[in-house]
Write a protein that binds this DNA or RNA. Sequence first.
DNA 1: ATTTACAAGAATTTCTGATATTTTTAGATT
DNA 2: AATCTAAAAATATCAGAAATTCTTGTAAAT
Lengths: 227, 227
Amino acid sequence: MVNQKKPDKMMNKQFATVGSSTYQRIKHDIIFGDLKPGAKLKLEGLKQRYSTSSSTLRETLNRLASEGFVEAPEQRGFFVTPVSREDLIEITELRVLLECHALEQSIENGDTDWEGNLVAAHHKLHLMEQRLLSGDESEKELWKRYDWEFHLAMIEACNSKNLLSLHSTLYDKYLRYQMLVLTYRGDVAVQEHKAMFDAALARDASKAKQLLEEHIRNGLEHTLAAM
Amino acid sequence: MVNQKKPDKMMNKQFATVGSSTYQRIKHDIIFGDLKPGAKLKLEGLKQRYSTSSSTLRETLNRLASEGFVEAPEQRGFFVTPVSREDLIEITELRVLLECHALEQSIENGDTDWEGNLVAAHHKLHLMEQRLLSGDESEKELWKRYDWEFHLAMIEACNSKNLLSLHSTLYDKYLRYQMLVLTYRGDVAVQEHKAMFDAALARDASKAKQLLEEHIRNGLEHTLAAM
DNA sequence: ATTTACAAGAATTTCTGATATTTTTAGATT
DNA sequence: AATCTAAAAATATCAGAAATTCTTGTAAAT
């Protein structure tokens, strides 16, 4: 007999509650630019757009405000956090600091599972990059997902939930800037990924860190130039 | 509790809205242990305790959840985030990483205002430490405020709002652990503060970083031993 | 004795609607 | 152009109720 505990709930497993679904959707729309930087977020409008009530919306917006995707000046409502060159530079510097540190720890602690996961993540990213190089730019979201999963796989064995959590938020903030300029660095980025991947598997933490730092900084230059 | 003073025209209004006041109060009660780690936060009870409605409370708890002071498992309500040795170690490592980096930047960029602020902050901290050494442990909140203001003054010229914001949250999390064991390291900490202060004023970034790292790690050992 | 099943009760999530307060706007005045 | 004020818009807060989910105690089954 197949063991199916709760077949009816498994369908809606993706987003259990209206609250978390709304959170995901608004965050997505901010990161992918559907909600423009600086835009006023009027409760009335959002109620319509996301088919939900003001209580749920205010909870969501408060969460996003505390993460830095939304600004909530006292008694003046909510705004999408504006973008700026300075902010992008700050975000990037922090990402270099945290991600490099996490990478070092991860390379030190990573076990066989970590390696396996990393190989898989790099493979999937590489396949996607081939498609992008051949001109198929149709699936930006998928591309960024694989990029995220690769970077996460690299640092996942760092042994610090707090660090992974901070890094995840930073990555999302960086991602918004990337989506804003919306260009692909092409073959260069592919090679950088491959080099980092090799250094990590070879457990060469020092080299991996250096490559990662260059990779992130190159991305910054590319994005700054396009702003 | 970390408290930014706002030199506004309306100083008499400590907290403008019910929401922000409730936020401050609950955060304070978590950090200072009035709301115990792991405790269930029942809406009914909180409504009474903080004299506010469930909407406002849910907004507040969502914010605190996103900062990591509260856990909000889906459809099971809210809990004060539990404590653990591992978490304390993670927090400490992150604080070393971020605060040392910020200190380096700050020493590099700090101008005359920065120096003046730092001198003042260290002076106030030092006065308070003298009182503590002479046995007057009556004002722990004040002591921690001066400690915070000193550490903040050290890194305030780092030129990164994002970094200062992350650091502030980390400091608060670390503070909860300190308040949990509630002991004073005494003369040793006083000397560490003085040495860091001198190195920072002398613009010796490398030495200041090293001293800061030791200072934070010594605090960790002290807290771990008392847990 | 331990596990399973299920119904009653408790708690949470979500929504509606109402009120007080504050901010924004638009028009009038200087 | 700058300022003031009244009206309109938006926000913050609250109370309460419906729907859903979780918890728990008790009975039934293994």
